[in-house]
Design a protein around this nucleic acid. Structure first.
Length: 419
RNA sequence: GUGGGUAUAGCUCAGCUGGUUAGAGCGCCAGAUUGUGGCUCUGGAGGCCAAGAGUUCGAAUCUCUUUACUCACCCCA
């Protein structure tokens, strides 16, 4: 017996409607905001991710699926969706299109991690990336897009956490201040944090160790060290969010783990998913395009984890509309009528009706059960009476009522009733 | 990468201190008189009890190893 690789999941026929529901909502929302779809390959040259995400990050340093192809080129399965879009933007000179350019995508992303609740080695993201605008209005727009989508899909208890990690200039000052603050307690921190202190002191802030939590209390916050430009950006974003009517909390602790972020960072977080509560993460990355070889271009974007989102919807009991149901099931009264049923089904399908019939030689009763389970909206039995009279009783499976319809009018009948 | 936990039918789980043919619920299939679902009742199919080794007269049950899964840390979606 073969088993599925660790950290991956099949989407089964009985569940695929959930994905379709979420993806349709995402597409509709993207369209509402005039974002257009972009598709990039599942793998890229490894160098792209080293440059853009940052070699010191966990994602790059230990989580990438990297391999050599037959010509010895180093390729990597995409560990996130943003860098490939940046590569494509530069490579295809998309700045020649009118800016701002709003894009969205669906993509699998691969990270070699230890799987747990809400964390997989292959997961899927709905992502949005907007290029060309440095305005805080665009940050708000992108957040509003995410918010609209999440609302549309039916999640309620998500909290928007907002922070600014400044530009490289303010961050440098902040790191110095933070180090100075932590200096006296370095010896009392956990071993992880001692390392973090040296490499990236900001990471000490979200340590869960009680000791470190205590040490960190009262630490300077990046948000207090913003330069005038970054501060104005943040203030502007806040007022724009108020205009959109989107609630948020400033959370000085959120620091995204990818090096390309600047200024605005945000997360939509839930408490219903255990410790993997981040359903959507994003922010501004004004230096990414340049680091990938293009000309300096301001950008904002986010990624939403589809598995986590669907898990959340299941948990809070949101109804995901199942569109994978036959409109009508045509049941042969006995095997002799199978061909007549095929003929009727053929006609119905020609008219755009999703029609199904028996392929198992089952009794009428068993066919009704089957039709019920597949969610068929109507059922009609075809036998001697119907062929003789040219009319059939069509049963409405929702309320059990029946109506008599002429055999050559079934398509019109179902079409008029099905919406 | 670091720690816990769990492995028995398709799914969720019972199987007490080791004792004969391994159980339930759900699901699946089929019946409950004549061509009609959802409720109820009856019957049926389906398990090398994760794998390997050991202890024992005897192991799903005890011990060890392996593997898988899972949760938390880390990181992220």
């Amino acid at each position: 017996m073969f088993t599925i690789p660790k950290g991956t999941k099949d989407v089964l026929p009985r569940d695929s409607y959930k994905w379709q529901f979420v993806e349709n909502a995402a597409r509709e929302t993207a369209k509402l905001f005039s974002a257009r779809e972009i598709r990039t390959p599942v793998f890229e040259y490894t160098e792209l991710f080293l440059r853009s995400i940052g070699e010191e990050t966990d994602v790059v340093s230990k989580e990438m699926y990297t391999f050599n192809d037959k010509k010895g080129r180093s390729l990597t399965l995409k560990p996130e969706g943003t860098a490939p879009v940046a590569r494509s933007y530069v490579e295809n000179a998309l700045e020649a299109d009118s800016l701002p350019l709003k894009m969205f995508y669906f993509t699998p992303v691969f990270r070699y991690e230890k799987p747990q609740e809400g964390r997989l080695r292959e997961h899927h993201q709905f992502g949005v990336e907007v290029y060309g605008s440095a305005s805080y209005l665009m940050d708000a727009e992108v957040i509003a897009l995410a918010n609209t989508f999440l609302k549309k899909v039916g999640v309620k208890d998500l909290k928007l956490n907002l922070n600014s990690i400044g530009c490289p200039e303010c961050r440098k000052k902040y790191n110095e201040a933070l180090k100075a603050f932590l200096q006296k307690n370095v010896d009392n921190m956990c071993s992880n944090c001692r390392e973090r202190f040296a490499k990236n002191p900001m990471r000490v802030l979200d340590c869960k160790e009680e000791n470190c939590k205590a040490i960190v209390k009262g630490a300077p916050r990046i948000i207090d060290f913003l330069c005038d430009g970054c501060r104005a950006h943040m203030n502007g974003l806040e007022s724009a969010l108020k205009t959109y009517g989107i609630d948020y909390v400033i959370n000085p602790d959120i620091v995204r783990g990818l090096d390309y972020y600047t200024k605005t960072v945000f997360e939509f977080v839930t408490t219903s998913l255990g410790s993997q509560g981040t359903v959507c993460g994003g922010g501004r990355y004004d230096n990414l395009v340049e680091s990938v070889g293009g000309k300096s271009t301001p950008c904002v974007g986010f990624g939403i984890g589809l598995e986590r989102l669907i898990m959340l919807l299941e948990k809070v009991g949101t109804e995901m509309i199942n569109t994978n149901r036959p409109d009508i099931y045509i049941a042969p009264q006995a095997g002799d009528y199978a061909l007549q049923c095929v003929d009727i089904v053929k006609t119905l399908r020609g008219g755009g009706i999703c029609a199904e019939t028996d392929f198992m030689g089952r009794s009428v009763k068993a066919q009704f059960k089957y039709a019920d389970k597949t969610g068929a909206r109507f059922v009609a039995v075809i036998g001697g009476n119907e062929i003789g009279s040219g009319a059939v009783e069509i049963k409405n499976m929702l309320d059990g009522t029946k109506e008599t319809v002429r055999l050559d009018k079934i398509t019109e009948y179902v079409r008029s009733k099905k919406q």
